[in-house]
Simulated assay, not measured.
Amino acid sequence: MRRLRIADVGANPLGKPVYGALVQAGLAEVWGFEPNAAAFARLPGDDPAVRVLPHAVGDGRAAMFHAYPASEMSSLFPLSARAVGYLGHFRRHLGTETVQPIQTRRLDDMADLPRLDLLKVDAQGAEVAVLEGARDRLSEAVAVVAEMRFYRLYEGEPALWELDRALREQGFVLHRFLHQKARMLHHSQRGKVDARAIGSQLIDGDAVYIRCLEDRAVLGDDQLAHLALLAAGVFGSDDLVLWCLDELSARGGGRKGLAAGYAEFLPQAPAEEEARHG
């Protein structure tokens, strides 16, 4: 089985990538894209399994790039003063951007990019354009990890439902959230209360979409194996791993016992529950 092929659009190095363990284990190769010059300069370039490119990925059209000093805020869209005014957060970023023309590139137009197994996209509002420009490269993919905006921060960025629709149109369904970010709204008592304890306004979060598995025949054996690796090494979805291993075992080829072997490393059921389902 070949290595996993992963594209990371918006590969800003703010933390360890979720697929890092798979790369270190020699199980994945990555194409990273980051148009913010400051962020791109911090991306590692010494791993032959990780290729990093300074491209703005989108729908292939010319656009205006809003580069903020806080590189994680950079976007093809400007921050919304109305949204920031309501939320009471992100005010320090307003008016700090440098705006410059940029040519976006579609993933489908990149000749050196193969068809993917996983797309991770955090493009500050441009996620729908990235997906629309990657229909061929995603035609065999088993999963997408996308940042989803619960409350619009940028002027003109697509709404949450538009991103969900774009993913479902390409055969993906929501599997789980990896994390969700919420902030406390500003109010007169903010100096007295614990902002982390009572912050309720959802801002964004990373969502995992997987290929719809209701018709399990849509995935080949390698795709099932790749999905199992991603579920174990990126999503933390052990039940999905077991589902994939069960299906691989059912297809034969000397793969009996895969699920039972994996289950040995998971929390075990109480004796009475095991007896009930045994």
Rank of each mutant, 00 (worst) to 15 (best):
Tyr19His: 06
Pro114Asp: 08
Val144Asp: 02
His175Gln: 08
Arg92Gln: 15
Gln24Ala: 12
Arg251Gln: 00
Arg183Lys: 11
His66Gly: 07
Leu14Arg: 15
Asp8Gln: 06
Met184Leu: 10
Arg183Ala: 01
Val18Cys: 00
Val128Met: 04
Ala263Asn: 03
Ala275Thr: 15
Asp59Met: 11
Ala28Asp: 12
Glu272Trp: 08
Ser188Asn: 11
Lys120Asn: 06
Ala143Ile: 03
Val57Pro: 02
Ala166Leu: 05
Asp215Phe: 05
Ala271Ser: 10
Asp47Arg: 14
Arg82His: 14
Ala62Ser: 13
Glu162Met: 14
Gly257Ile: 09
Val9Leu: 03
Pro78Thr: 07
Glu34Lys: 04
Arg176Glu: 11
Ala63Cys: 06
Ile6Tyr: 10
Gln124Ala: 00
Asp46Phe: 11
Val142Arg: 00
Gly32Asn: 06
Ala260Gln: 14
Lys192Arg: 15
Leu242Val: 08
Trp161Val: 08
Arg276Gln: 12
Pro101Trp: 03
Arg196Phe: 08
Pro48Phe: 15
Asp136Gly: 06
Ala49Leu: 12
Arg152Trp: 07
Gln100Leu: 15
Asn36His: 12
Arg196Cys: 02
Arg51Thr: 13
Ala271Phe: 01
Ser74Phe: 10
Arg82Met: 13
Pro54Ala: 09
Tyr209Glu: 04
Ala195His: 05
Ser75Ile: 03
Ala49Asn: 14
Gly95Trp: 09
Leu174Ile: 08
Gly171Glu: 03
Ser80Cys: 03
Lys192Tyr: 15
Asp239Ile: 00
Ala250Ile: 03
Asp215His: 09
